[in-house]
Amino acid sequence: MNCVQARDRFAELLDQRLEGPVSGDIRTHLASCPACQREFASLRDTLDRLDALPAAKPGPRLRANFYAMLEDEKRSAAAAAPVAARRRPTPGANVWRWILSPLAAGGLLALGFVAGHYSPQRTAPVTIPATSSPDQATQQELADLRKKVDSMTQLVGYSLLQQQPAGERLKGVLAAQNLTQDDDQLITKLISTLALDSSTNVRLTALEALYQHADKEVVRAGVLASLTREQNPLVQVSMIDFLVAAKDREAAPTLQEMARSDKFDRSVRDAAKRALVQI
């Protein structure tokens, strides 16, 4: 056995988990080759030092955050369970649905046809008189109305979104995370989710999705505004980490207040203190 062959098999001598008979040839070679002895000893020495490295211990905030997250998930699961049970159909009901649904649909169709045919008068379509170019005041009024309708639509859209189960909302946010282009509407939705969603998981995922837009002032302002109304320490700490990563100096006054105030969890106060050094 030469040096190259012997060194290829040093791993077997060094790591006792590597099974297989260690050839006596390697030991014979080692006994007679000072260069391989040095190579082997240096590897052994490195391995011993590596194994002697002390294990670092995490800080207390990790445990606190974990159990806060677990409790939150348990609450979400408990809230979702009755809904899931209500939705589960019984086998008997399923059969009746197959029989009755087409009959009901057919009946409704026939009723509609008869009512339409014997209707006493038919209304002509309403025509809107064409107007000449509206004056400036009207245009302004129309623009204001459009803005109101838009914001109302957003609010309604968000309310509808909130009615979906947390899993569906999470999927929506995860899909948003994969979109890289700058879409103001998408960013607004993500910030709204971060501020208003009832599920911690969904809020955390929204925050994760916002990382790629952290260079935008509106995003940093949105996270900072959400931080002041957030109740969960886990999300609060994650938001602080976000503001640190974004190097948002605007956050300093809020963080100072959080670091001082007793109404926040200790892990949050510690995170705020660290953030003040890092920003």
């Binding site: 670092a56 995490p58 955050n65 974990f66 980490d241 660290r274």
Partner: peptide, 10 residues
């Protein structure tokens, strides 16, 4: 990075 490690464990 200690803090990053804690966050990743979480």
């Amino acid at each position: 990075d200690r803090l990053a490690a804690e966050d990743i464990v979480q």
